[in-house]
Design a protein around this nucleic acid. Structure first.
Lengths: 194, 194, 194, 194
DNA sequence: GATGAATGAGCTTTCATTCAT
DNA sequence: TATGAATGAAAGCTCATTCAT
């Protein structure tokens, strides 16, 4: 559908050139229509991007949910590993969308700020809740506080890896993931691996 | 000096609106001159921003060096804590410049890419080298491999905290820093909880 | 059609002020539109003028063909006279376009140079061929070499007259045309006029 | 002297880009000074170009006088030939100045029009007078009218050659000069081929 | 649904010029 | 003599948007 193609093109152009650089011209060209036609579907540029950003955030959320769903039967350390590697892999393969996501978070247009905040809260709550539950499943001996802390620590490490996607090449990044997983192993009490 | 004031205004406007939104008009207004005057000092917008980005990266480097210099006499865990808190504090107080820095790293203009890469390498090498040396000082019993791993783990946690500056409010961020320091404590064998 | 009117206005402004002085503003004003509208039809100023110059040269060619067509039944000396007078008359009445043509030939913009050269060759070949044929018609006794020389001599005299349009007023120019025709009369062997 | 160098640079830039394209910037650069410095010598751009054009015309006049001076002892047909070849050679070697001269004549800036007209009259009178005298010297049998006509015819052919400098390459131009000299030979009654 | 044609606003940039030094 | 610094004006051009078709 044209309306969706416009949305995707908008995200793509935003990832390449940011809001001011993502012109209606470029978006239209990517879709294969004329700029005037966009106005049939969206009132103006602002409305288009509000829609585009919402889609972007929903995509991101759904993707993380899918990754988690696929590994929830495995032991918790494997889940941690898969989430990290899955995140990296996805972002390496979708640098454009990732950059758009980062741009959006670091300098969100005023119109989307409220929506963005709600999204981040929802996402955070979901992640903490899901992981909390899974950790408990494998480590019923841990207290609630311990479990929550572990969740937070995982998220911290995941965020570290996420940011380093921008900084390191593949090999270095793999090493950093190993470091993260090693830390998680220790935190889970598995450092008695000997 | 006008030339420097233009550079600062360029960084500021870039942090607020990104490259396309940082117009010569706005930059000139911030300096208190007319747009045409900018061209006396810089050939064109691109040249101005190449200069601005170089300055931005150098600022960032110098600042980290300063922070480290001020705490190098303290024990290593304090150094870790100070570096993290110093980084967060600086960025919280200079959100504009931080956002400019993040923008620059996540979507660097083609002209600055080479310079950016060199900078990141230099910065990384300096950080690893400095921390390596300081860890050795306090923990001479650790092997080189252990020390290097520890350095990498610290950097990973620091990057996590850095990215979370964008996501969390002050209180949550403090908690995350605590988590990070707790992990580092464990990794240093501090609370060998046994 | 707007697109054609823009072309004509471009030629006119070029004839008045040369390339740098023929501003999009002035061209638009002459057409009765806004400058931005020109860019709907032509990519930029350069593209507009490439098109304009091509049209100018084609106009010039067609005009000369028309003049020749109208007199081809008359004796050769009359043809010579008509071509000369027709050229002068046209140029006197269209000084702007003539000046544009002269400007174009004396300092052609780089983009049109190739096209210009091809045009001049085509024009030259056509003129030599046409005249050659007509001279033969009236003077079958002349050798091919003589005919070709005569053609060249006519073109030389025509070029002299063409340049003198810029130098002399009407009366003096008429005298010079008389001189030219007198020479041609002699060259055709008609100097036994007494 | 700087003042003269500015003048020369102005002529050169004018020949390359016409009045509007000959910027103070470019002129200054060619001289090796800053644009502001030009204003010490000339009130403004217009004043500079009035001076430049006057110099250009004087140069042209002097050059023609020099050429004539060098050959005045030879027979008249040689003088004709030398004038023509000298003109072509000079212009071929100084295309820039020639183009400036042509530009000036075909579209003179309003301020110089009066001066230009006077110059052309003076130049014309000088040429007719000089040639008239030299033809008489070699052909005392010719009437005044014949001599004047011959002068005019020579000028006509010279103008034709002059214009064709723009149109033809070296070889074709040489041929056209041969044609012109052949005509002049006939007009002088030289090869009364019968 | 889609677009050709048009435009006001605003962008980057150049230009001639000024003036204190 | 010469220039560093500055600017008003205007250049070429882009952009979001409109509207009749």
């Amino acid at each position: 559908m044209t309306k969706d193609k416009i949305l995707e093109a908008a995200i793509h152009q935003y990832s390449l050139h940011n809001y001011h650089g993502a012109t209606m011209q470029k978006i239209a060209k990517e879709v294969g229509i004329k700029p005037a036609s966009i106005y049939f579907f969206y009132k103006n540029k602002e409305a288009l991007f509000v829609a585009a950003f919402q889609k972007l955030l929903e995509n991101h959320f759904e993707r993380m949910q899918t990754i988690l769903e696929e590994v929830r039967e495995k032991p918790i350390l494997d889940i941690f590993a898969t989430l990290m590697k899955g995140t990296v892999e996805y972002h390496k393969n979708n640098m454009n969308e990732t950059n758009a996501y980062i741009s959006l978070i670091t300098s969100p247009p005023a119109e989307i700020k409220k929506f963005l905040h709600e999204h981040m809260n929802k996402f955070d709550a979901w992640m903490i809740d899901s992981l909390h539950h899974l950790i408990k499943r494998d480590h019923p001996e841990k207290s609630d506080e311990e479990t929550i802390n572990l969740t937070r620590q995982f998220i911290l490490l995941l965020d570290g890896i996420f940011w380093e996607i921008n900084l390191y090449d593949d090999e270095e990044l793999s090493e950093q993931i190993e470091q993260a997983l090693h830390i998680l192993d220790i935190l889970l009490g598995g450092n008695n691996n000997e």
